[in-house]
């Protein structure tokens, strides 16, 4: 019995792979080589114009993707329902964001206080292991103080966030609950998910003031932010680099950070996200992923090097992997499967 369903899903899957990748060669082409030449990459306007789909990028959302997420909208917030994997992944990426903010907030602060001397006492950053020589009581006190100091610094930050492709708002709500986030805008091109996001927001009074949702494309969005996030969305758009370019424009310079997560285009990703996730374990709704749209972490890094050679720094790239029964676990192998990335704008 097991065998039969196994072979069936496999056939289905291969069919899907063939149909979805008919126009794009599977492994040879990276997401940017096909459209961007090295010379045009430098000047972003010509790069945009040169792109065949650039005429109405602003309103472009793949209709299949849209209807897919429309059907998922009603169960978006059921942490045990169709989006469970996303709920769990949200934990891993919040950990990732926290880690980055704790380590790189200095720049963010400098940015915020408009060049005024930042008053961080760098002596506070004694590595944790040195405290182990102290008696417990003192150690605990030091750790408490250290934590408190880091938090105090962060709290002063009052960061602003733009979440692109926010879906039902899992990340938006999480960020909005952090005391050091001042304002967060969530945008998405699927009205149904924005509806759900708004409804869910109304259930928690703490979210009322900081969080605003809109059905809006990234190009229509105004303003610059300390943090721009694009989680689990690049693999759902037809033109990831358009989105990346616009997203990057919304990041404040002098320390703003772009966070993104997506999936490496490799066999392991196919195996874990599509074969295991959608077909065998059925923890991801069928039709969520298309291998051809996956982007390798190396490609993004290379692309940033070309596009913005002097104004960006890749702070961190982490692999993240779903282990049934354990949830998402971040790891150092960022070239396979899902990954998280933080890029700072200089």
């Amino acid at each position: 019995m097991f065998k039969r369903s196994f072979s069936l899903t496999r056939i289905q899957h291969i069919k899907r792979l063939q149909s979805s990748s008919s126009s794009v060669p599977k492994y040879s082409t990276s997401f940017l080589n096909s459209n961007v030449s090295k010379t045009t990459a430098r000047r972003s306007t010509s790069f945009l114009n040169g792109h065949p789909a650039a005429i109405d990028t602003s309103n472009k959302v793949n209709p299949d993707e849209k209807s897919h997420f429309e059907t998922l909208a009603p169960t978006w917030w059921d942490s045990k329902g169709s989006q469970r994997i996303l709920h769990l992944m949200n934990l891993a990426r919040m950990d990732f964001i926290n880690e980055i903010l704790r380590n790189y907030k200095v720049q963010l602060n400098a940015n915020n206080s408009n060049g005024s001397k930042n008053d961080i006492d760098t002596d506070l950053y004694i590595p944790r292991f040195t405290t182990s020589v102290f008696p417990t009581e003192i150690k605990k006190n030091i750790e408490n103080e250290l934590n408190a100091a880091i938090y105090k610094e962060l709290q002063k930050s009052e960061l602003t966030v733009l979440d692109v492709g926010c879906g039902g708002g899992l990340l938006c709500e999480s960020l909005a609950r952090l005391p050091f986030i001042k304002k967060i805008d969530g945008i998405d091109m699927t009205p149904a998910v924005i509806n759900i996001a708004k409804q869910h927001q109304s259930l928690d009074p703490v979210l009322a003031e900081k969080l605003t949702y809109a059905v809006r494309s990234i190009d229509e969005q105004k303003g610059q932010y300390d943090i721009v996030t694009m989680f689990e969305m690049l693999e759902h758009v037809d033109d990831p680099k358009e989105i990346l370019i616009s997203g990057w424009e919304h990041v404040k310079s002098n320390g703003g950070i772009l966070f993104l997560s997506t999936i490496n285009r490799d066999l392991i990703s196919w195996f874990t996200t599509i074969f295991m996730g959608e077909y065998v374990l059925k923890v991801v709704p069928l039709g969520t992923h298309h291998l051809s749209k996956y982007i390798n972490s190396r490609e993004i890094i290379a692309w940033f090097k070309e596009m913005y050679p002097l104004s960006h720094e890749v702070l961190q790239v982490k692999g993240t992997m779903y282990i049934p029964g354990k949830g998402w676990v971040n790891h150092d192998c960022s070239n396979v499967g899902n990954y998280l990335m933080a890029i700072q704008k200089k």
């Binding site: 045990k80 926290n98 709500e173 609950r177 952090l178």
Partner: peptide
């Protein structure tokens, strides 16, 4: 849970 911005009343998460 709080550092992850979760609703601390959630049993599941």
């Amino acid at each position: 849970a709080s550092s992850r911005g979760l609703d601390i009343g959630s049993v599941d998460l």
